[in-house]
Amino acid sequence: MIEFTNATVVYPGGLKALDDVTVTIEPGEFVVVVGLSGAGKSTMLRAVNGFVPIVGGSVKVLDQEVRGASNKDLRGLRSNIGMIFQTFNLVNRARVMNNVLMGRLAQVPRWRSTLGMWPEDDKELALQALERVDIIEKAYIRASDLSGGQQQRVGIARALAQDPKILLADEPVASLDPVTSHMVMRDLQRINRDLGITTLINLHFLDLARAYGKRLIGLRDGKLVYDGDIADVSDEVFRDIYGRAITPDDLLET
């Protein structure tokens, strides 16, 4: 489903954010990526939907080579990949429903999206997505009037409305308090389990990774340092990933 083969990402300016990474992710997996900030977690996720320039090796997603793909191919690929952001990235001034409908943009004819005349099917998908994250009653409220946790759930609904095959979550709980964090993580876990969507999550907190992950990928300085079952991960492994002992800062609840 997602195949990194010796993938290397270099940013303009020479920073090597991903260095010779080879990983294969099977359909339906729930994978957690951990590492220090700057270790290349975000870059790894963004390589999947072609947001960062891949300069070496290959990244194959849904049998489509991301490196060097045309804009049209990339758009087609992205329409199958939902993405969830640390800062939610909702259009604050727009209503929740319109934010979720953004997930359908790639599927509707151009004239319909221009005039804002959405097909009933797409509206239905958006409403179902909102129901799945349990926020349907807020459908016609401005996004800015929601709390942080609610906003993130709208963000998830937007990704779900795409009817995606892959879900990328870039530090989805980093801006949330512990209780809301757990709720959002449970939502993501449930979506993975019920809908079988391959999920790739970046996390900073180790305890969250342990609580919800199945498979763990550890990155350090852009290099793959661990890839395996999360149950086998010892403190030694974490030390290897982080380059230091675990501190309370690395845990959500101490």
Binding site: D121, L125, Q128, E131, R132, D134, E137, D163
Partner: peptide, 19 residues
């Protein structure tokens, strides 16, 4: 998109009335 609407079951979300 007809398949996908059936794909999502609404079992665990309670009977919330759509606004």
């Amino acid at each position: 998109m007809t398949d996908s609407t059936e794909l999502w079951t609404k079992d665990d979300t309670g009977p919330v009335i759509r606004p």
